[in-house]
Design a protein around this nucleic acid. Structure first.
Lengths: 330, 330
DNA sequence: TTGTAGGCGTTATCAA
DNA sequence: TTGATAACGCCTACAA
């Protein structure tokens, strides 16, 4: 590696003072165009890059944001996190920020990590994913004025902080309408146990859509934990009804894949739609609701930059609309 | 947030000089035990955390390592990257390092990013994944003495840098032996086009195992690009042979899932084994070769710490053994 | 418009 | 064993 290029190297090369170089970088408009160009040429020639550590010491800003990487879990829905992360890294990079990763086993552990990260690296902001009811993390961060954005609505205390989310109810409504449009009248729903904010929201999209068009949702919803086996068992329950559904909307792809297994005839007429458009769904031909994760990540970065760079006007939240990816199962 | 706690705050609180506090942190053995404890108590009480930016300015080390996050791709195999990343973040954290993410569209873009990252953040090391033949990235990094570790063998120039890898040939051999043990004699292989280092390695495990036990591999291997549809078509080809295989080993889960589709009877007797133990495999009951990604990530961190902290003795590479996860398909 | 001085928090050097 | 001093690279304030 060539010798370290500092602002002094550039200054010398361009025959100006260090301060002028700094000005060219930070407030170019106050430098005479002629000088500015000379300095810029020097920067390019020497391959100068401002040292973030030194800059951070002066400005207190690290241009670093942190996001938690979660264990794959059942894995099927894990790819959501992966795609979000990639989008976030891209968008952050475009805005001049870098993404730092951390892991945590639970909320308390995560809060301890905030403390660490903040103390050691002076992180500019955090991006939280998967907020739930009464999230202790948001109150901790808000309590210390640490900038953060959540991917996921603040379900209890709306608008205390910037957030981006995908309208799950709308996604499920799209799925339901698709089934109605293709002739189904008995449309069931397999959801997560009541109390999960995301799950309840998605279910509401099914219920309201049926009600709107005059169909009766009663008796056609079931709750279960996530998983293939659970989806299969629950779908069987519904199919065993006296007047069974001919189509199922599921709150996740895992449950949807299970539901597909419940119907013995592979060419059968049970329509199934999942949620998240995971790779498995694509592989299996499962119609599914797709979240615009790239846009969501970009939105998080926009909001964050808004909070960090601009006036203290809390940026407006962003609720994105998912889309339905049609495949073979509906 | 309470006032910023610096080394000076601690020094004052513990009635010592800043330097003594620094010594307690970095070279505790040279500080009198009595003083040491007093300083440690002060650190704990005040919640002091060394500022990395300042430390970096002095030492030139950032305790940061960078890894590329790749787009999900076909997604099925994407979860491999995800699990590796999680393990890496965990292991790095335990060793006092943090992981920074970056994206790149190709090798040149990635090299440009190295330059950026090195200049701006003084990264301590890079972790590269998925090395191929004649990888330009490794030569660039090696050329500037930037420490790095690869997850993936240097296929051309062995041992020029530390690496961790999983023995793909062994994994496929395990799969092949399993099929032989369960009575199969005609065992086919669906691989990637020759020339991909990883793919060729895996195929060799199949070929050598068959040969060892006196079975004939000839005519039973096919090459195709990755994908469900490709797997299905290729499997059909093999099943259409005069003397078709009764079992297939596939170089990836995607191909294996496709192969499963080729056999019309769901309860059929075509045994199939995939590679990577992706969530989809788990969901579909596909027997698959599982890479010890957590261990691989930990190994990368170990090697990196070795390079950074210790004598310039190049650490020994680490070749891990995968395991076969038995499910319904074999 | 450009240059000079000082300090951000830390650690290496050297003196006490 | 402990403490004073300087320096890492940058930016802000102020002076020229």
């Amino acid at each position: 590696m060539s010798q370290k290029v500092t602002i002094a190297t550039v200054a010398e090369y361009a025959q100006v003072s260090r301060q002028t170089v700094s000005n060219v970088i930070n407030t170019p408009e106050i430098v005479r165009p002629e000088t500015r160009e000379r300095v810029r040429a020097a920067i390019a020639t020497l391959g100068y890059r401002a040292n973030q550590a030194a800059r951070q010491m002066r400005t207190g800003r690290s241009r670093l944001l942190a996001v938690r990487i979660e264990p794959a879990g059942d894995g099927i829905n894990g790819s959501v996190a992966d795609r979000f992360l990639h989008g976030l890294t891209d968008a952050a990079g475009a805005a001049g920020y870098r993404v730092m990763l951390y892991t945590a086993v639970d909320d308390n552990d995560e809060i301890a990590t905030y403390d660490d990260l903040l103390g050691a690296y002076d992180l500019d902001a955090f991006v939280l994913t998967g907020t739930g009811h009464g999230d202790p993390r948001t109150s901790w961060l808000a309590g210390r004025d640490v900038p953060f954005v959540t991917f996921g609505r603040p379900w209890d205390t709306p608008d205390l902080h910037p957030w981006v989310d995908v309208d799950g109810a709308d996604g499920v409504a799209q799925a339901t309408r698709r089934l109605i449009a293709t002739g189904h009248r008995r449309i069931g729903f397999i959801g997560w146990p009541a109390g999960s904010a995301v799950g309840d929201d998605r279910r509401s999209g099914w219920e309201s859509t049926l009600t709107e068009v005059g169909l009766d949702p009663r008796g056609l919803a079931r709750e279960t934990h996530d998983g293939i086996a659970e989806g299969e068992a629950t779908a069987r329950e519904l199919l065993d009804l006296d007047d069974p559904p001919t189509a199922l909307v599921c709150v996740s792809d895992s449950l949807a894949l299970g539901a597909l297994r419940a119907y013995p005839d592979p060419a059968g007429s049970l329509a199934v739609i999942g949620f998240d458009d995971t790779p498995v769904a694509a592989a299996m031909g499962l119609t599914s609701v797709s979240q615009p994760l790239r846009e969501a990540a970009a939105g998080c970065v926009d909001l964050m930059v808004g909070v960090l760079d601009r006036a203290p006007v809390p940026p407006a939240p962003l609720l994105l609309r998912p889309s339905l990816v049609l495949r073979q199962t509906a």
